[in-house]
Amino acid sequence: MLENLLLNHYEAAAVILSGIGLTNLLLQRNLIKKIIGLNIMDTAVYLFLAAKGYVAGRAAPILIEKAGGGWLTSSSIYVNPVPAGLVLTGIVVSVSVTAFSLALTLRLYEHYGTLNIDEALLKMTQEQEELEAKIEDAEEEVLA
C-alpha cells in the first residue's frame, strides 16, 4: 500500500489537501476561513485531475507540426486532454461560487459585525427576542 501511495504521490497530496479543505469548509466557524477551505478543496481536486491526465513521456495536447508540413496525430504523443477540460470547468465554477459566498458574507458582516456564523445566530435570536418583547409591551399598553 505504501509503495502505491509513493507511486501515486500527487494524488495522495491532492486527497490530503482536499480532506483539509473539506474539514475547513465544514467545521470552521469563521466564514472567510470556510471559503478558503472551499478553495483549498477545489484546488486539490484540480491537482488530482491534472495528475490523472498525465501520461509519462508525452506532450501537452496541442498538435505539433511535422517537419515537412501536416500534423503529428498519433495518440501516443499527447497526454489525456479530458482532465484539462474538467479542470477548466472546475475553476470557473469555483470562482463563481467563491464570489457568491463572499457577497453573502459581506452582507452578513454588515449587519452583525461578525464573521462567525454562530455569533450571527446568537445576535439574530437576541434581536428577535427584543423585537418580540417590544411587541408584547406595545400590546400591553394598548390593552391598558
Partner: peptide, 21 residues
C-alpha cells in the same frame, strides 16, 4: 479530517498507477 484523509488515501493507494499509459 483524519477519517476523510485516511479513507481517501486508502482509495488512492488502489487507484491506477500515476502516469501509466
Amino acid at each position: 479530517c483524519l477519517v476523510i484523509v485516511v479513507l481517501l488515501l486508502a482509495t488512492v493507494a488502489e487507484l491506477p498507477p500515476f502516469g501509466h499509459e
